[in-house]
C-alpha cells in the first residue's frame, strides 16, 4: 500500500464521523431536528458521534439530558408528534430497556392508532465488544419484530451517512444501531445528495460458490472468512442487509436462487435471532432452489462475558463462519 493511499484513508471520515456528517447536513436542511442524549455537548457523545455539533448549532439543537431513558424517548415522541424531528441518543442500546414502553407501546403504535406520524430517530450503539453483559446486548430483533418500528444496522461509514439522512427525512420512528467495534473504521461516504433507502441490501463482494447474508460487525467477520476461503479457491458472495426492517427480501430471494448454498449470520443469540426468520422465509419461498438447508451462525445463548476472549468465543468467529460455508458447499 503506498504512502499516499494511507494518507487518503486517514482523512476519510470514520463510521462515527459519517454519522456527524449526515446529521449536520440534515440539521442545516431541517431546523426542527434536535438531538437529546447524555454527554453530547462537551464530550460529543461516547463515540464522538455528535462531536462539534453543539458548538456549531447551539444548545437549542443539542441538549444534554438527565440519565432518564424513558423521559428521553418520551421527549422524542411528544416533540415528534408536535412537529420536530428529534434524534434521541441512548448511547448503548442496552439502556433502551429503561424506555421499552415508550419505544414499543408508544412510538411504534401512535401512527396506527391516531393516524399521525412520529418522526423520531433513536440512535444507540449495539453489539458485542468490551464492557460485559450490560453493554453488549444485540436487541435488534426486538425492534424489528415490533410493527411500526424500522431498524438500521449499518456496517460502514457510507451506509451510516446515507441511512441516517434517509431516517431524518421520513416521518417514522427509526432505531438506528451502530456497532461499537466499527466506530473508528474509516471509509468513503456519499455527498449530501446520497440517501440510502431502507430495505436495500448491499453486495459487499460478489462470489460464485456460496453466499453469506449478514449485517453489522458480522460483515467484517464474513469478509475475513471469505478471504481465507479464497485462498483455497472458494468464491463467496457477501450481502449486507443494512436494515432489518424494512428487509430487502428481493435481495435475499435472489441470493438464494442464485447460489442455493446460503449462510445467514449475526452475533445475536441464535435462539430467536432474526437470522431464523430470514432463513425460514427464504426457504419457504425458494425451496426448490436450495441445494440443502440454509445454515445459520449466531451467538450462544448466554450473556456476554466481560472477559474479552470469552466474549469473542460467544459470537461468530472466522472459523465458525468458514465451517458454516463448508457445510453448505458440501451439499
Amino acid at each position: 500500500m503506498s504512502t499516499q493511499t494511507e494518507t487518503t484513508r486517514n482523512t476519510l471520515p470514520s463510521y462515527s464521523e459519517a454519522f456527524q456528517q449526515g446529521v449536520r447536513e440534515e440539521m442545516y436542511r431541517n431546523e426542527s431536528i434536535f438531538i437529546l442524549g447524555t454527554d453530547l455537548i462537551e464530550r460529543g457523545g461516547h463515540f464522538a458521534q455528535v462531536r462539534g455539533i453543539a458548538q456549531e448549532f447551539g444548545l437549542e439543537r443539542v441538549k444534554d439530558s438527565p440519565i432518564s431513558e424513558a423521559a428521553m424517548v418520551a421527549s422524542g415522541i411528544g416533540a415528534g408528534m408536535y412537529g420536530c424531528h428529534p434524534i434521541i441518543d441512548l448511547n448503548f442500546i442496552d439502556f433502551s430497556l429503561g424506555a421499552m414502553d415508550e419505544i414499543i407501546n408508544q412510538a411504534a403504535k401512535i401512527r396506527f392508532m391516531f393516524g399521525k406520524p412520529v418522526p423520531l430517530v433513536i440512535r444507540a450503539t449495539s453489539g458485542v465488544a468490551l464492557g460485559g453483559a450490560h453493554h453488549c446486548n444485540s436487541l435488534e430483533v426486538l425492534f424489528a419484530h415490533t410493527p411500526g418500528l424500522s431498524v438500521a444496522v449499518p456496517s460502514r461509514a457510507y451506509d451510516v451517512k446515507g441511512l441516517i439522512k434517509t431516517a431524518l427525512r421520513a416521518p417514522d420512528p427509526v432505531i438506528f444501531l451502530m456497532h461499537k467495534k466499527l466506530s473508528g473504521v474509516r471509509g468513503e461516504v456519499g455527498d449530501e445528495n446520497v440517501l440510502i433507502p431502507f430495505g436495500s441490501a448491499h453486495t459487499v463482494q460478489s462470489g460464485k460458490d456460496a453466499a453469506i447474508i449478514t449485517y453489522g460487525y458480522t460483515v467484517v467477520t464474513a469478509q475475513k472468512a471469505a478471504a481465507k476461503l479464497a485462498e483455497s479457491g472458494v468464491s463467496i458472495e457477501i450481502i449486507d442487509l443494512r436494515t432489518l426492517y424494512p428487509l430487502d427480501e428481493d435481495a435475499i430471494n435472489e441470493t438464494v436462487k442464485k447460489f442455493g448454498r446460503v449462510v445467514v449470520a449475526d452475533e445475536a443469540p441464535l435462539y430467536g435471532s432474526i437470522t431464523g426468520d430470514i432463513a425460514s422465509t427464504a426457504t419457504e419461498e425458494n425451496f426448490k432452489y436450495l441445494k440443502g438447508p440454509i445454515v445459520r451462525v449466531g451467538g450462544i445463548r448466554a450473556p456476554i462475558s466481560a472477559h474479552p476472549q470469552s466474549a469473542e468465543a460467544a459470537i461468530p468467529t472466522v472459523e465458525s463462519m468458514i465451517n458454516a460455508v463448508k457445510k453448505v458447499l458440501a451439499y
Binding site: A74, S75, G78, G80, G83, Q106
Partner: peptide, 10 residues
C-alpha cells in the same frame, strides 16, 4: 405524562 412533556419540548 411523558408524551405531554415531549410535546412541551416541541
Amino acid at each position: 405524562v411523558g408524551i405531554a412533556m415531549g410535546a412541551a419540548m416541541g
